[in-house]
Amino acid sequence: MRAVQELAVRNLTVTHGRHPAVHHVSFRLTPGQKMALVGPNGAGKSSLLHAVAGLHAPAEGGIEGAGQVALLPQASALDRSFPLSCRDAVLLGLWNEAGVFRAIANPGRVSDALAAVGLSGFEKRPVGSLSAGQFQRVLFARLLLQDAPVILLDEPFNALDARTAADLLEVVRRWHGEGRSILAVLHDLDLVRREFPTTLLLAREVVACGPTDEVLSAQNRLRARMMAEAWADDAAPCVRAA
């Protein structure tokens, strides 16, 4: 793993057309920090994560240290009928070192990564034959191979049974123990309070960011819930300083 650097998001605005998904968001993810990203549906959590991962060009603002991130996408966004074995799906995580042509050094790492997420012996299974939980484990194994200093998780424990969620949470703890920074979109506030010391509460803009207990106060959560969900086509152009 490369040295972990700070990830700094400054005044970031991401739009769909002219409507802001999130706007004027600033925060820092310091090396080794474990931060939860919390907010109601439609608050722009995934958009923010995608922008940090470089999938969405920001309309305004910028991100420093984005070169070191790896993203766990929402599993529902992938075509699971694709004819790929678990081994090959995990191998994709080595893209940065293998690229278009280079041979893969030490391919035994794939089996190790599968074993680390509890899928020993699944190398040849087509991803299309996996359960939702097993598929999520495969995506975690791919993240393991990516070996990134900063890890972004988009709803990593959704629709998982208790044991799968506990196993994968253990993987996240291990990453944190290795000094990586983690930013995870989560809906389970009890889990956030237990596991994540810092929280960013988002409602298309930052409602609060800091120690989890302070951020998740009743008052803040009420403010987040009162977020305007609808897009207003007659809204005035935003004049906040860029």
Binding site: A53, G54, P73, L84, A89, L92, N96, G99
Partner: peptide
């Protein structure tokens, strides 16, 4: 022969491909 890996990656998970700079 040259494009095999990027094509497979891009078919299976286009946003991952973009994120890793393919």
């Amino acid at each position: 022969a040259v494009a095999w890996r990027p094509l497979v990656l891009e078919c299976f998970d286009p946003s991952f491909a973009r994120a890793v700079g393919v």
